[in-house]
């Protein structure tokens, strides 16, 4: 018997099976393995996408028994000329920009501090990541209590530091404060996630590089800007990508917290889309809306990923 495992398997294969298998080329075997995944992908991703694009040109309503008519690009025209849609786009942009800004800023700062070796380092890491382990619905719910003007801890903290009377302002009821109320909660919940990614980036930088910089008498400030930031940048950009995609489809936390109000000031596109699709049941219209959002996210993400790859290649 040969010592080679492949030969041993070949010898052990019953002749009937061996005869059948012998006829398969490498390419066929590759397809055999990849095929199920491709079929699954087509069934759960590509087919629904094509079907959604098809529905977006119709007046189909999933809850109504009536003939479906093709109405061309009318759904797209209505969405893109609807002031409410642009308001929700604006609300989403505000939410996206500021949540990512604060999460990256605070997340990186925390990661930088945690990366320093000190006693209780692990315990602090565990405490900091606790918020992201909670369910968004739970977080939204208990922050409504924290924001309560009469009993809310948040308002009392603000009163303590600023002297502004706690019952004189309502974070989720005031038109100026409500968009910030959802930014604060999302930042509180997801900054730890950004921190963890940044921490991975910082820990991937070899100590030897800093030692070499020390030998060259580079200041800490210079080391930070010329070594730490450039080497952690791909990780930071990855964190921005993840949070950007996640927050573009933000739904549960905001619904629980503000219900999209006051008025429509915190009605993000995902909330608007859900109402069109599953409350108004305007399936065709909602499909067009979904296609527009998909193209927007896909386009932005593609540009961003190209930039990320360029940074990684440097």
């Amino acid at each position: 018997m040969s010592g080679n495992p492949i030969d041993r398997v070949a010898e052990a294969t019953p002749p009937a099976i061996a005869n059948k298998v012998r006829g398969l080329s490498d390419r066929a075997i590759a397809w055999l393995f990849v095929g199920p995944s491709i079929v699954l992908l087509l069934a759960v991703n590509i087919f629904p996408l094509i079907w959604t694009i098809n529905l977006s040109f119709t007046n189909f309503k999933a809850n109504r028994l009536r003939d479906v008519e093709y109405i061309g690009t009318r759904n797209y025209e209505r969405i893109l000329t609807d002031a409410d849609t642009w308001n929700s786009m604006q609300a989403t942009a505000h939410f996206l920009f500021w949540t990512i800004f604060f999460q990256v800023l605070i997340g990186f700062t925390l990661a930088y501090l945690i990366n320093k070796k000190f006693k209780g380092n692990d315990m602090w890491t565990t405490i900091i990541v606790l918020p992201m382990m909670l369910s968004p619905a739970v977080v939204g719910n208990f922050w409504t209590f924290l924001y309560q003007p009469q009993i809310g801890l948040f308002n009392y903290v603000v009163e303590f530091f600023t002297g502004i009377e706690s019952s004189s302002f309502s974070m989720i009821g005031d038109v100026n404060l409500a968009p910030w109320s959802i930014v604060i909660v999302d930042t509180w919940m997801w900054t730890p996630f950004v921190m963890l990614i940044c921490l991975a980036g910082l820990r991937s930088i070899p100590d030897s590089i800093y030692e070499a910089a020390e030998c060259d008498r580079a200041s800490k400030w210079r080391q930070f800007w010329t070594l730490t930031i450039p080497m952690a940048l791909p990780f930071l950009m990855l964190a921005v990508l993840f949070r950007g995609i996640e927050n573009f489809k933000m739904f549960d936390l905001v619904v629980q917290l503000t219900g999209g109000g006051p008025g429509s000031l915190t009605t993000l596109t995902s909330i608007d889309l859900k109402r069109e699709a599953f409350e108004k049941w305007r399936t065709g219209y909602a499909s067009a809306y979904a296609v527009i959002l998909f193209v927007t996210v896909f386009g932005l993400a593609s540009i961003y990923v190209k930039a990320l790859n360029k940074v990684k290649e440097r």
């Binding site: 309560q148 009469q150 302002f169 005031d174």
Partner: peptide, 10 residues
């Protein structure tokens, strides 16, 4: 505006 508790916006 004038007769409800603060924070009763939802």
């Amino acid at each position: 505006d004038t007769g409800t508790p603060p924070g009763s916006s939802n």
